[in-house]
Amino acid sequence: MHMKRAAGIAAIAATALLAGCGEQGQSIGQATTYKQGKYQGKPDTRPYENAPGAFSQGAQWNAGDKAGWESAIKRRQQGQNEYVKAE
């Protein structure tokens, strides 16, 4: 009887002690050193670094072609100006 109770208590204690081991680390990460006032996240690609993809609706530029992307965006911007369309 005593043995059973002791085993039960030991099992409960072990469960309670190990419960914290499943906790995920909450620090920013070892790779990142925190610096006040500077972006700490992952780097982002620029919109022209990749080819436009399947949904570009005619916009074409080669990967990395900044001027090509800019001209595509410029064309698109003028689509908002209906005075250009009407005249």
């Binding site: 690609t45 919109p47 022209y48 990749n50 436009p52 993809g53 949904f55 570009s56 609706q57 916009a59 074409q60 530029w61 992307w69 595509a72 965006i73 410029k74 698109r76 911007q77 003028q78 689509g79 908002q80 209906e82």
Partner: peptide, 27 residues
């Protein structure tokens, strides 16, 4: 959408073209 050579969907979908989006100078 920018990486697809497009502008924000809200501005491009605006039926009366009240909402404009893009380069500040152009807009």
């Amino acid at each position: 959408r920018l990486a697809e050579g497009k502008l924000p969907a809200c501005a491009e979908m605006c039926s009366t073209k009240a909402l404009l989006g893009g380069d500040g100078d152009v807009v």
